[in-house]
Design a protein around this nucleic acid. Sequence first.
DNA 1: GTGACACTTGATCGACGTTA
DNA 2: TAACGTCGATCAAGTGTCAC
Length: 301
Amino acid sequence: MANVDLNLLFVLNALLETRSVTRTARRLGLTQSAVSHALKRLRVTMGDELLVRVPGGMAPTARACALAEPLRQALSTLSDVVASPRAFEPSTAQRMFRVMAADFAQFVLLPGLLGLLARCAPGIDVWVVAGALEDPDAALVAGEVDLVIGVPGRGHRLAGVQQRRLFEERFVCLARTGHPEVQGKLTLEQYVSLPHAFVAPRGRAGGIVDDVLAERGLVRRVALAVPNFLVVPHVILASDLIVTLGSRLGKAFEKTWPLQVLDPPVPIPGFTVTLSWHERWHGDPGHTWMRSQVASVAESL
DNA sequence: GTGACACTTGATCGACGTTA
DNA sequence: TAACGTCGATCAAGTGTCAC
């Protein structure tokens, strides 16, 4: 097949339809001579005369007749392959997106996103990939996931990974309503002396809060470290622990459980939640639409 | 036989791929 | 990046067929 010029097959298809070198040339925008040369090359390639001169025009040989319909179908398929991708129609699309997201991001974004999909794109499924986001860029490059929602690490981005900002988040503290020491306000002294719950998705100690305290020569005690936020409100309710987490998560927990949201006693830099994807999907209409929907939900938070 | 039309063939040019 | 080879298109001339 490497020796077959596909353009010759389009010429042959036109020849079989017009039964004329001249009309084929007009149809393809070539000179009659060029089509004649093309027919000559086709004859060599196929090892058959393909079309022979008869009174009134050119007549296909038996081999050419046998080729006609398979050739027409093959060229139609090829044309579809080369044609521009069809526009994405969310209302009828059937597709699944694999999303790697921190559970914090799942909690904040998924309700709004799934509500939007139910209204606009009922055939689109979302599979959230659990994990500690150890190397989300590598998962994108390897094609294991379509999107990553999370807080970008400090390392270099892998080539080909694209990113856009979704929303900014600030930290708040959470304690149970009937906490014996904390009522509506948290002092720095309380913050350092009280035991903390700490969410460590990667199972590692330390983070922004510890860095801020260390700058002041302070250290907090982490009495409980858990890998996700699911259990946090339950342990805070059942203990005198306090926790520092994203404000959207804290306010959501406060609505459901008897918990109090408090400002941290020291300024803690916030963080940016981003959406990442691999450049191979950048121009894909469906992927582009999905990214815009995630961004839309984030903007509405 | 002649002219018109369609196809074939050879020479040439330019684009493109390969290679050093 | 330049030299070289290959290939497809065009031009021009030749050939075959058909109608008059």
